[in-house]
Design a binder for these strands. Structure first.
Lengths: 158, 158
DNA sequence: TGAAAGAACTACGAATTCGTATTAAAGGAG
DNA sequence: CTCCTTTAATACGAATTCGTAGTTCTTTCA
């Protein structure tokens, strides 16, 4: 419990700094850039606002990130024909390439979890983390999808 | 599982932005400032290097943070008599005040967890999170203390 | 219809973090 | 004792994030 506290204190600055997998990719792009590319890969083309919402970031930050990614040639931004205010963001070929690499890296991270967790633990971990996240989510409408699950009995090893 | 993925993508930018308790305090100090004050409250006076290590931040960042906190009057830095290179960092009265407030806020956060988790779930949550953190910790010597615990059977509700 | 309200972005500046270079003290090796 | 290496910390500049203030369309409603 105290250890959870400690972990929390360290997590404010440089979150997830302990992960080594991210380093090679972070030579080319920022972590937020990387998140953006992954989101585009998963969700397809999005507007700036949608992207910002998916990232949980303010729109002004999203502008900075998009500008960077555009300069590096990883995304393209085109103003929508229906509504000329909105810009639709698309992955370029090169961007798709990086996004795929990022996905591999994420899978590798997930692999680490699977290496130390039993499948049941992994499921339980997921459920507990989501439950915790929901608990912290002020009292506003939960943005995270509700996971209704029947009770599960599992054994933690080690 | 996919939801864990999503949560991860959002956590890079603005980690723990979903917590409302931190907002009143973050008017006065940064989140990293807050971590620093808490660490000083728990561990007592520390040197700059020790502080950086506790924070998991580079020393140069620690310098910036300490300069800020000193300017605001929350800490004092005195060069050690034994070794004139090291600076010992101390909480001022006002700093102690803020640190105590921060501690209250942390307890309130913990209270949220206790509200939605059963004691067993909380224990399991702690164990699994620590286990996961250790798994991500490259292959270097684990900085987090090993939690050897016997197997536990628990039931997750909801 | 046309003026006001609202929406989707961008611009800009301030604050923060951090890598690299630098300063200053301490600890040897000869 | 003198030179060299190591250690503790700061200085500085670049990059990032984000709040606030525009800018440019779109919608509304009187």
């Amino acid at each position: 419990m105290q250890q959870l506290y400690d972990l929390f204190l360290k997590t404010g600055l440089r979150p997830f700094a302990f992960m080594t997998e991210t380093q090679p990719l972070e030579q080319k792009v920022t972590r937020s850039d990387l998140s953006t590319l992954l989101i585009l890969l998963f969700r397809g083309d999005l507007t700036m606002s949608e992207l910002a919402a998916e990232m949980g970031a303010p729109l002004s930050s999203m502008t900075s990130i998009a500008k960077r990614l555009e300069r590096k040639g990883f995304i393209a931004r085109a103003t929508s024909a229906q509504d000329q205010r909105v810009k639709r963001v698309t992955l370029t070929q090169e961007g798709k390439q990086i996004a795929k690499e990022s996905e591999q890296m994420m899978l590798s991270l997930l692999g680490r979890l699977e290496a130390v967790f039993t499948p049941e633990e992994l499921e339980q971990f997921t459920m507990l983390v989501l439950k915790a996240a929901r608990a912290f989510q002020s009292d506003g409408p939960s943005k995270l999808p509700e996971t209704k699950k029947a009770s599960v009995k599992i054994t933690i090893e080690e």
